[in-house]
């Protein structure tokens, strides 16, 4: 008999504004704790979602404050999957260059760290262009894995 993975799913929609980072983080934090992630993994999820939403607000919506972020959390036995959907300008995560992580203080970049952090902290990061316009970003954190 094939085991079917059951997903406990919840979705919330937030306006794409910086002041909504806190309620978005609260929303995913609750799901992360229900998914049984340890404290370190919960903080990784919080930070990754923070970076992802900041990207949407800054790049997809160009800091206009107009446009929604649809956040879906799906809890499965071994993982938490977070999907963030926006209707803004499509952006290609792969086009963001990896920041230089070594060298003198004066040469260190102050930009480009967010995407790098997000990709390092999550077990999977997938980006698709939405057929309706905008972006679909999927973040996966498995239970019992280190970033």
């Amino acid at each position: 008999m094939r085991r079917v993975s059951r997903c406990s799913k919840r979705t919330a929609v937030f306006e794409g504004q910086y002041e909504n980072l806190e309620p978005i983080i609260e929303f995913v934090t609750q799901a992360a704790r229900e998914a049984g992630l340890d404290n370190s993994a919960v903080q990784a999820v919080q930070l990754a979602v923070d970076e992802a939403c900041a990207n949407i607000i800054e790049h997809a919506y160009a800091n206009s404050g107009i446009g929604d972020i649809e956040c879906t959390c799906c809890i499965e036995a071994d993982r938490l999957t977070i999907t963030l959907v926006d209707h803004g300008v499509p952006f290609d995560l792969d086009s963001v260059p990896r920041p230089c992580l070594a060298g003198k203080l004066e040469e260190r970049p102050e930009r480009g760290l967010g995407v790098y952090i997000m990709c390092q902290l999550m077990d999977e990061v997938r980006h698709e262009f939405s057929p309706q316009g905008g972006n679909i970003l999927t973040l996966v954190k498995r239970r019992g894995t280190q970033p």
């Binding site: 903080q43 919080q46 930070l47 923070d50 970076e51 900041a54 203080l105 260190r108 102050e110 930009r111 760290l113 967010g114 952090i117």
Partner: peptide
């Protein structure tokens, strides 16, 4: 936690 914006402030 500290985000990339916070890290930029530190650097």
């Amino acid at each position: 936690y500290i985000s990339s914006a916070g890290l930029r402030v530190l650097i």
